[in-house]
Amino acid sequence: MEHYNMNLTLKVWRQENSDKKGKFETYKVNGISSEMSFLEMFDVLNEQLIHEGKDAIAFDHDCREGICGACSMYINGKPHGPWELNTTCQLHMRAFKDGDTIVVEPWRAKAFPVIKDLVTDRSSFDRIIQSGGYISVNTGNAVDANSLPIKKDHADAAFAAAACIGCGACVAACKNSSAMLFVSAKVSHLALLPQGEPEKESRVLNMIAQMDKEGFGGCTNTGACEATCPKGISLSNIARLNKEYTLASLISE
């Protein structure tokens, strides 16, 4: 891989806090290596801003290896930037070329209010999980792990759904700001396992009720969420959720 350096123009959303109105600011960064990660490029910019006596740009990030789900930049119109199956922290600068202008926005959804600059409040996801995204088993109650065989393809499908990192890119990408992919990933993960069976109905009904309450939109199956999901969570999970929901709503009392 050839390494190269580039000069870039960045248009970044700046917003002091949730009460203030935000706007775009334009910054220039020079000598960015193609081997840097996108967030390292932001580190460089922030160092530059601090030296100029300005406030650093706030952005969420933590593990920087694509698994914690904290990073959340909407880059040139796509959550997590141009690469497929990727998080912002794993995006590297060789995705760009010298002279490029990059527009960076926060996740935008009423259910994810901006805290500062590119940082949003995603605690609505926690509350959705609280409404039923678990199996009710107290510590110490469990039977031997191998006492209940699980079909490999079910286990694999459950794992594929459980790979969700809760970053919220699906909400950011969806024209309706719907959290259906996130909710369906959890519903599918637990519905596919026999351990999740007893609470199947109440789980899906409560989680959807909470999702609606948090102010996320409805799903219209456009598929934008699947296309942007860094972990490749499949749209078929949403169909599975629909099935679970319909059955549950028919039989619940």
Binding site: Y134, N141, A142, V143, I150, A155, D156, Q195, G196
Partner: peptide, 12 residues
């Protein structure tokens, strides 16, 4: 045992 009961999808 506890993790499997919670629905942790270990490889099978």
């Amino acid at each position: 045992d506890q993790c499997v009961a919670q629905g942790v999808p270990f490889a099978r």
